[in-house]
Design a binder for these strands. Structure first.
Length: 378
DNA sequence: TTGCATGATTCTAT
DNA sequence: ATAGAATCATGCAA
């Protein structure tokens, strides 16, 4: 009989320890009775935990088996990894003893107590600042990536965000969608790289986490490792990986900013309106020269006719008013031209109307030339 | 290349 | 919020 088996047997022999072995409180209560025995057990535990890995191994499993309940807490360090694997390759002798240990009725209770002791000593020193509040930096990055359409919903999000960004940046997006196909393509590229990298990180993180968790779970059969401790280890791993993720997010944000400054901020790039649009605007302007301030509805109507935005209509009228006012003489010819045009159009409409009313009306197009003032008004 | 035309932006006043 | 004014930046013809 080796030390541990003896110890477990000894525990089993403690007075009244026959029920509720899974409940640490109950065990503690019962353990509290025989002071002498507790001292013995603790001494045995100390003896086991104090001895080196080699000693333990030599004493417990002289030839082949690994040490248990000793060594480092960190499964990622040194010999911890793989030692506890429950693979079928382990010698039969070891398997038997391990099985005996695992099945011992006192094991869960004892482990709970040991975990608690461990918790109160070693881990309380390490894990002081474990509850990390959501990092404001990473939240900022997340928000930005979402706003830029890099993270978040797949299709449409990107272009919508680009249009939104253009609107926010410029006040009057030049119909958002037209110029920025190149921008959107680049943004999609960034988005794709970001997602594939993120996926890689997430996969690596979950793989590593699983690996460590399996390791710890396996080791928890032979070492006092509480679920809380495993949780803590997992959160440490997640923290490490999230810092890597933050770097990824940061560099993605930078890339997006550079892209934006290169594409969207070149919004001053302009196209002249087409001839028809200019004509429509001028017609309205000169036919309302006494009050060239189109209402919101009129602007919308004009915008629709000219296939431009309402704010472009506003810009156009703003520019036109100020430039006309500054140099009426220069615009005189244009004013006359549009005055005639408007009059002819009106005449045509009127003629058509009267023709509809009385088809026999003669001289349908023969209206006198419009009389207009020097500023172009009829 | 240059100068003018023109759409967009920014600032200020109302 | 809107208009006026100044200015910027680009388009385009000469």
């Amino acid at each position: 009989m080796d030390d541990q088996t003896r110890m477990l047997a000894g525990l089993g022999g403690l007075g009244g320890l026959t029920q509720d072995v899974g409940d640490p409180d109950s065990v503690r209560k019962q353990l509290g009775q025989p002071q002498q025995d507790i001292g013995d057990i603790l001494q045995q535990i100390m003896a086991i935990t104090d001895e080196s890995l080699d000693e333990a191994q030599a004493r417990c499993w002289p030839e082949e088996a690994p040490a248990q309940w000793g060594g480092t807490d960190d499964p990622t360090e040194g010999g911890g990894a793989g030692r506890g694997t429950a693979g079928g390759a382990l010698p039969l002798n070891f398997q038997h003893r391990k099985h005996a240990l695992n099945c011992h009725r006192m094991k869960p209770a004892l482990f709970s107590v040991l975990c608690e002791i461990k918790e109160k000593t070693v881990l309380s020193i390490r894990g002081v600042q474990e509850e990390d509040p959501p990092d404001p930096q990473i939240m900022r990055l997340d928000n930005m990536l979402l706003a830029e359409g890099v993270s978040g919903p797949e299709k449409g999000g990107g272009s919508a965000a680009a249009a939104a960004a253009a609107a926010a940046a410029g006040g009057s997006p030049n119909d958002g969608s037209i110029e920025h196909s190149d921008y959107r393509a680049k943004l999609a590229q960034i988005r794709q790289i970001y997602h594939s990298e993120l996926e890689k990180y997430e996969q690596a993180c979950s793989e590593f986490t699983n690996h460590v968790m399996n390791l710890l779970r396996e080791q928890s059969r032979t070492r006092p490792i509480s679920p809380k401790e495993i949780e803590r280890m997992v959160s440490i791993i997640h923290r490490k990986f999230s810092s890597i993720q933050m770097q990824l997010k940061q560099s993605t944000c930078e890339a997006v900013m550079i892209l934006r400054s290169r594409f969207l901020d070149a919004r001053r790039k302009r196209r002249n309106f087409n001839k028809q649009a200019t004509e429509v605007l001028n017609e309205y302007f000169y036919s309302h020269l006494s009050n060239p301030y189109p209402s919101e509805e009129a602007k919308e109507e004009l915008a629709k006719k000219c296939a431009i935005t309402v704010s472009q209509v506003s810009n156009w009228f703003g520019n036109k008013r100020i430039r006309y006012k500054k140099n009426i003489g220069k615009f005189q010819e244009e004013a006359n031209l549009y005055a005639v045009k408007t009059a002819v159009d009106a005449a045509n409409v009127s003629a058509q109307a009267s023709q509809a009313n009385s088809p026999a009306t003669p001289n349908s197009g023969g209206y006198p030339a419009p009389c207009y003032t020097p500023d172009g008004r009829l």
